[in-house]
Every structure is written in structure tokens, then in C-alpha cells.
Design a protein around this nucleic acid. Structure first.
Lengths: 129, 129
DNA sequence: GGCCTTGCTTACTATTCGTAAGTACATACA
DNA sequence: TGTATGTACTTACGAATAGTAAGCAAGGCC
């Protein structure tokens, strides 16, 4: 029985992220991408315009911001509303499932910030050794 | 006041992942990296040898497995024990903080697997529109 | 001697990413 | 009237990163 011939529903039901072709791998990639993480955290704080996100997510390029927002929109985690005005006005916000995802991501980010001293100690200890 | 001159401790205390030079960004990058996520999930299930990880984390190359394990070890999340035998025998396991990180990651992965049908529906709806 | 094993490392290539510039208007200001 | 500014992107191109495949060390087995 080859993996590729296995019915979609089976893979979904089993929910096997560890498997190469599992569709959850893609979603995981979008959500945990370098900028996806930060965008979700910011959007958890409310609706933002493109340029507001660009300013808040320090270091993101317009290219990657646009691309990552398209991924997240494609996965149904982010909603995009464009007002047909000039100059353009576009608002991004989280969908209900987007809010769930953002909750998990923020929990992880918060944890890292809390544990950062421990992690830095570990890094320093390794350098010393 | 320039960001780069701001004392390290201040940035740490504030724990600002959104800032470009915050050290938590690096850790976040390692933990949420494509293979970091899956490695943490597997290691949560217990100690594994290099080749066992390679088999369980479907699709990872030896190059990226080694590199990601080194990141996680450097951050103090993974412990590496090498037995001086031939052929080599190396065991990887989670440290206490590694176990905490893995818990958050697995919560996210589990959530994605549960929500995958909804996400796929959202994707399909967009394609139709 | 030749081959097998494990846990890497090292070249080389493919993919992705960051940087900078361009676009289409409208408004502000000189 | 002309120039500058702001928005939300897209596009080209060089740089960084990831994937592929091969190599390596050193002992055991036949």
C-alpha cells in the first residue's frame, strides 16, 4: 500500500503530521513560519492594516508580509477586507479558527520570553564548556 | 535612544518578540523551524537515536536533522549523549525546559490536526470563489 | 580484503528570502 | 503647476538557506 494512494480522509483522520505528505504539514509550515508567528500574535490584538502590521512586526519586508498574509488567508486563519478607495485601504483580522491558532502561538511565544533567561544560561554554559 | 544600544537585560525583561533584535526571536526560529517542530514532537515520546529520529520524522535529511538538533541542543532544549563506541551510538532526549517547549508545540500540532477539515474547507471555498 | 553499520560533515544545487525598485492613484504643500 | 507623500502591493535580482548526494572514520563480520 503506497502512501500516495492512501485515501485523503484516512490521512486526515489519523492526522499524521509526521508523515511527509500529510496536509497538516503545510498548515503547520504557514503558522510556524518566521513571520506567520509574529503576524498572528499582532493580529490577536485586533484588526490591522497592512502598513500597521509592517510597522509592528519589526524587520518584516513588504514581500514576506504580503506572502505570509496570503498563506494565512488561504488557510482560513486571516480575513482580508479591501476597501476600493485611493490610496488603498485593506484590513486584516483573525477568523475564529485564526484566533485559536494565535492563542497557541502566543502561549509558545510567552513561554519563550519567560524562559529566555534559562535558555541563555544554557547557551552560556555550553560556550564555557 | 537607539535600539542596539539598549541594554540586553532590558530587552530580556520586556521580552519583546516583536522587536528585531530580541534574542527570543532566535529561539522561536529554532523551535518553530520546519524540522524543529517535528523533532520536539517525536522526542516528547522518549529518547531516540539519530537514525530513529531520521526514520520517524518523515522527509528530513540527515543534514537538517543534525543542524536542527544542534540548534536545540544549543538552546538547552535537547540533551545529547554520545557513547564512544563503533559504530557510533548517540542518544537524544528532551531537557526539562525542552519538555515544556514540546508541550506547547504538540498542543499546536494537535490543534491543527483536529481543525484540518475546517481549514481544508476554507481552502476549497476560496478556490471556488 | 571488502562490506556493513552509525552519525555525522562536506560539496553542489535548488529553493526561498531580503532588498530595492516600480505601480496607480489621491492628497498636501510650495 | 510641480513635487513629495502615503497605501498596498508586485517584480527583479542577489544573498542566504534548504535539499541531495557523496564521503568519512573505525571497528566487526565473512
Amino acid at each position: 500500500m503506497e502512501k500516495d494512494l492512501e485515501p485523503f480522509s484516512t490521512r486526515v483522520r489519523r492526522g499524521a503530521v509526521l508523515e511527509r505528505n500529510c496536509p497538516s504539514r503545510e498548515v503547520l509550515k504557514h503558522v510556524t513560519s518566521q513571520w506567520g508567528v509574529l503576524i498572528l500574535i499582532v493580529l490577536e490584538g485586533g484588526t490591522h492594516r497592512f502598513s500597521e502590521l509592517r510597522r509592528k512586526v519589526d524587520g518584516v519586508s513588504e514581500r514576506m508580509l504580503a506572502q505570509t498574509l496570503q498563506w494565512l488567508e488561504g488557510d482560513g486563519l486571516v480575513e482580508r477586507i479591501a476597501y476600493p478607495v485611493v490610496p488603498p485601504h485593506v484590513e486584516y483580522s483573525l477568523t475564529p479558527i485564526g484566533r485559536e491558532a494565535a492563542g497557541h502561538i502566543r502561549a509558545l511565544a510567552d513561554w519563550i520570553e519567560v524562559r529566555l533567561p534559562d535558555i541563555c544560561d544554557a547557551q552560556a554554559a555550553r560556550v564555557a564548556a
